[in-house]
């Protein structure tokens, strides 16, 4: 039976199980959680928002990294990404609750190039979508799965998030609505629509609370 409360840990486990148990090669999975944003002091004036609930980043398989035409990232952009990673590392290891604008301490992970999909995943943590807009918002409001495969489908989408995903090398993006949010998956490979995945999401994410 579904648990009364879904903790971050169980969300993480479900996202991980979804990706690691799939035959297809998914790069990441994100759960966009439904919440209500109170606009001003009027409590009746609320907007349904889909914001970061949790995410699981599997990473790029070597065969994908090799065959993929790299998005030319400028040296300045790569430096910027590394600096952000270093700062976030020092924030997390320092146990603080804020990100400062100062330089973080250098370490091995902070000196390694930050891939496009890592960056896309990281930036996603700062994003949220009003119900009805953006890829997750549209999937939720229509209660329908959105399945975009092929770079043309992503590049031609009216959703900025799909176009952004294509720029970062994604070939497939999927948003599957659930009771309390939307599960989004992305892949560097073309993956065709399957009812298996949708059914799995429905069974893994059919909880209350």
């Amino acid at each position: 039976p579904p648990p009364p409360h879904v903790t971050e840990d169980t969300l993480q486990q479900r996202l991980q199980a979804l990706i690691e148990g799939a035959r297809e090669s998914w790069t990441y999975a994100v759960f966009w959680q439904l919440s209500h944003d109170f606009a001003g002091e009027d409590v009746s004036n609320t907007a349904a928002l889909l914001s970061w609930g949790d995410g699981y980043y599997k990473g790029e398989e070597e065969r994908n990294s090799r065959k993929r035409k790299p998005n030319p990232v400028s040296a300045a952009e790569q430096e910027h990404r590394k600096r952000v990673i270093r700062e976030l590392n020092s924030l997390i290891s320092g146990g603080g609750g804020t990100v400062s604008s100062g330089g973080g301490s250098s370490d091995e992970a902070g000196d390694e190039d930050v891939s496009d999909t890592e960056w896309f995943f990281l930036v996603s943590m700062t994003q949220s979508f009003v119900n009805g807009s953006g890829l997750p918002g549209r999937a939720f409001s229509s209660s329908r799965t959105i399945w975009l495969s092929g770079s043309n489908a992503l590049a031609g989408s009216s959703c900025e998030r799909a176009r952004q995903g294509q720029v970062y090398g994604l070939e497939t993006m999927v948003c599957i609505p659930t009771q309390n949010g939307v599960v989004e998956l992305g892949s560097l490979e073309i993956i065709h629509q399957s009812s298996d995945l949708v059914e799995k999401v429905n069974s893994f994410f059919s909880f209350n609370g």
């Binding site: 993480q12 970061w52 949790d54 997390i92 091995e108 390694e112 890592e118 943590m125």
Partner: peptide
């Protein structure tokens, strides 16, 4: 400075930890 919500902080910590593991094992 930017305050981080708890859910994102936990996700971020996991992401950075896994990234460290990937980099050091490569």
């Amino acid at each position: 400075t930017v305050a981080l919500p708890q859910a994102r902080k936990a996700s971020l910590a996991r992401f950075l930890e896994k990234r460290k593991e990937r980099v050091t094992s490569a």
